[in-house]
Computed example of a mutant assay.
Amino acid sequence: MFIDYAKARIKAGNGGDGVVSFRREKFVAKGGPDGGDGGRGGDVIAVGDENVNTLITYRYTQLYAAGNGKNGSGSRKTGAAGENVYMRMPLGTQVFLLKEDGKKIKLGEITQHGEELVLARGGRAGKGNSNFATATNQAPRHATLGKKTQEQELELVLKLMADVGLVGFPNAGKSTLLSVLSSARPKIADYEFTTLEPMLGVVKGSDYRSFVMADIPGIIEGAHEGKGLGHQFLQHIQRTAILLFLIDINTPDPIAAYQTLRSELYLYDKYLDTRPFIVVISKMDTVADPDEAFAPIGKAFKEQFNVDALPISAVTHLNLDKLTHRIFELLDEQ
């Protein structure tokens, strides 16, 4: 199951206490202070993991708690530090701290494999009494306590990281295209909203080159306002390098469909309007005369938007080589 939103509770480790202790040895009647420091509390750390692709783990684990530092002891022995706890997260995860007043503070985001982000630092260690000896107080009888930490609540939001994002209305052929170009196996059926969660596929080209393509669930008008789970779907497009608009050849008004898709993206995030893009007219295998059916559509796109739309068919593989070649060209320009 693909989960792109979760909440998690975390707690860094408490610092260990310093101790009051005095050196006690045979023939040493009044040894000096030798109380050791406590150990530092463990941290809670997020780690990027390219092998993790969902936040589902954080739906079921109640609390991620790091180890507490151990107390110090005599002979100036420092307590052991608490163990860190690591939260392995998919690339593209944003981490927010939820405050009691309802405000959110962004702690950071994970974008690279092995990248670490400290979410909560362990409590500082307490000082033993050996730290407080002076010329006028050679037998201090006090030590400091380690710092205690509090539980915190996090909000985790996953935005897929892909080179190409497929954008289109429901049942435009996005999943079929992804399944043909890559080894991904999304659910495919002849009804709208077959795809209910994003899916990634690796498309391999020549010379050992490849790119990652994301199949985003279909967009409907009003998606920027959250209609049809629009916000959950649109957030995954924000990290893609190239937008690939798919418009069904059987759409009554392909130009209007394209304008609606562009408008929804712009209203959600105006910077998406500056992203490189490709327009393809899909399902050419469903019309009797592909050339005749595409000609007026291709002409309209060229005249109105100066866009060279590309007719394709994932079923007959029409122009799929041209499509991948054009994608590689755009990626090289980035």
Rank of each mutant, 00 (worst) to 15 (best):
Leu119Glu: 00
Ala120Met: 05
Ala120Lys: 00
Arg121Gln: 12
Arg121Asp: 00
Gly122Pro: 02
Gly123Leu: 07
Gly123Pro: 06
Ala125Glu: 12
Ala125Leu: 13
Gly126Val: 11
Gly126Ile: 08
Lys127Leu: 15
Lys127Trp: 06
Gly128Cys: 11
Gly128Gln: 05
Ser130Ile: 04
Gln138Thr: 14
Ala139Ser: 14
Ala143Thr: 10
Lys147Tyr: 05
Thr149Ser: 05
Thr149Phe: 01
Gln150Ala: 13
Glu151Asp: 14
Glu151Thr: 15
Gln152Val: 06
Glu153Thr: 15
Glu153Phe: 08
Leu154Arg: 09
Glu155Asn: 08
Glu155Pro: 04
Glu155Trp: 07
Leu158Arg: 08
Lys159Gln: 15
Leu160Glu: 10
Ala162Lys: 06
Ala162Cys: 13
Val164Arg: 04
Val164Tyr: 01
Gly165Ser: 12
Leu166Lys: 06
Leu166Ile: 14
Val167Cys: 09
Gly168Trp: 06
Gly168Lys: 03
Gly168Asp: 04
Phe169Tyr: 10
Asn171His: 10
Asn171Thr: 04
Gly173Pro: 08
Lys174Tyr: 09
Ser175Gly: 13
Ser175Ile: 10
Thr176Trp: 05
Thr176Tyr: 09
Leu177Tyr: 14
Val180Ile: 14
Val180Asn: 06
Leu181Glu: 05
Ser182Val: 07
Ser182Gly: 08
Ser182Ala: 15
Ser182Leu: 12
Ser183Ile: 08
Ser183Asp: 13
Arg185Asp: 05
Pro186Gln: 01
Pro186Ala: 02
Lys187Phe: 07
Ile188Asn: 00
Ile188Trp: 03
Asp190Pro: 13
Phe193His: 12
Thr195His: 13
Thr195Asn: 10
Leu196Ile: 10
Glu197Tyr: 11
Leu200Arg: 08
Gly201Pro: 07
Val202Cys: 04
Lys204Pro: 01
Gly205Thr: 11
Gly205Ile: 03
Tyr208Cys: 02
Tyr208Ser: 11
Arg209Trp: 04
Phe211Leu: 03
Phe211Met: 02
Val212Gly: 00
Ala214Cys: 12
Ala214Phe: 00
Asp215His: 09
Asp215Arg: 08
Ile216Asp: 00
Ile216Tyr: 01
Pro217Gly: 02
Gly218Thr: 08
Ile220Val: 14
Ile220Gly: 00
Ile220Thr: 02
Glu221Ser: 13
Glu221Thr: 10
Glu221Lys: 13
Gly222Glu: 03
Ala223Ser: 13
His224Cys: 09
Glu225Ala: 12
Lys227Val: 07
Gly228Ile: 01
Leu229Pro: 00
Gly230Met: 06
His231Gly: 06
His231Ile: 14
Gln232Ile: 10
Gln235Thr: 09
His236Phe: 07
Ile237Met: 13
Ile237His: 05
Ile237Gln: 06
